[in-house]
Simulated assay, not measured.
Amino acid sequence: MTRASVERYEIEAFLTLAEELHFGRTAERLRVSTAHISKTIKKMERQVGVPLFERTSRKVALTPVGSLLREQLRPAYDQVQQSVQNAKDVGRGIRGVLRVGYFSSAGGRFMLEVSETFHARYPDCTVQIRELQLSDGAFRLRGGGVDLQICGFPMEEPDMTIGPALYREAKMLAVPARHPFARRPSLSLEDLAHVKMVQNPPELPAYFDEFHHPRRTPSGRPIEPGPTAATFPEILALVGAGKGVYLTTEQATQFYLRPDVNYVPVLDAPPLEFGLGWLTTGHTHRIQAFVQAANDTRDALTGR
């Protein structure tokens, strides 16, 4: 099958059927007849030389060749569609709606400042700031709930593009107010061998969790795992109840003060850096303009 032999509508029909696995629903989505979809798929199969779908009276399923074709076509098709949308955006200027996700109060405050800079430049584009939870991970991004989001580094997802660091925060250990650590002026990562560590939700990437919430101290001593929580308020509730400690950042002393929790600096822990991330196939001129506004806001705040 040569590139010139496949029309755009054939690719669209194939990818839609590969998603729906139902000729009727595919025809409804594309607003054509079921017979037209069937004819289009048969034409592609003749060009390929083998079946792309297995058809029975009960189900439609991709063949191995069909699965391979879908995996190779989908990213390229999405990129073409996005390129067309980008061209439309340039022709109309930056307008529409941009949905930005953030974690934590500090992230929300920074995104509001970026949004003000962005809106001053592009008044026809509305920015919607949406709070995310730790358990969301990149799900809301991949599910289409947000267009880009604040990410904690390291972030090494193959389908995402990550912008430069926008701000960083020093590490602090949240400890029960009555714990002996609460009276210390500072701590080290080696001190974690003597406590239980409240665990992040499993949706967080394992490499991120290990980098910021290690299972062993630098000398190799194990850090005992404590209970798991899905949100930061849940984490602090567990800490306040004496169920464990948690490595957080300095923003907690501004936004999450509790009488039953103290925050102690951990001097040898790596800081947590934050930047914007978005799906590589979802890049738009709106996103590019917002990232530039974020970089400019960072430079203004730091005096660069």
Rank of each mutant, 00 (worst) to 15 (best):
V6P: 09
E7F: 10
A13M: 11
A13G: 03
F14C: 03
F14Y: 11
L17A: 01
A18T: 03
E20I: 00
H22W: 04
E28V: 07
S33L: 08
T34C: 04
H36R: 15
I37W: 00
K42G: 15
P51H: 02
F53N: 06
E54A: 13
E54R: 15
K59C: 10
K59V: 11
V65R: 11
L68R: 13
L68D: 09
R74F: 02
Q81N: 07
K88D: 14
D89L: 02
I94E: 04
I94V: 12
L98R: 01
R99W: 00
Y102G: 01
R109K: 13
F110I: 02
M111D: 04
E113N: 08
V114D: 00
R121Q: 14
I129C: 10
I129S: 03
E131L: 12
Q133I: 04
L134S: 06
L134P: 06
G137P: 08
G143P: 07
G143K: 04
I150D: 09
C151N: 09
E157W: 08
P158T: 03
D159T: 15
T161H: 02
G163M: 07
P164R: 12
A174R: 05
P180G: 05
R184D: 00
S188I: 05
S188E: 11
D191C: 07
N200T: 14
P202Q: 10
E203V: 13
E203R: 14
A206H: 07
F208G: 04
F208L: 09
F208S: 05
F211K: 07
F211H: 07
P225Y: 03
A230W: 13
I235T: 13
L236A: 04
V239Y: 02
G242H: 08
G242R: 08
G244Y: 10
G244V: 06
L247T: 10
Q254G: 08
Q254W: 14
F255L: 09
L257K: 15
R258T: 03
D260Y: 12
V261H: 09
N262H: 13
V264L: 07
P265S: 12
V266F: 11
A269T: 08
P271H: 05
E273N: 13
L279T: 02
T281K: 12
H285M: 13
V291P: 01
T302L: 11
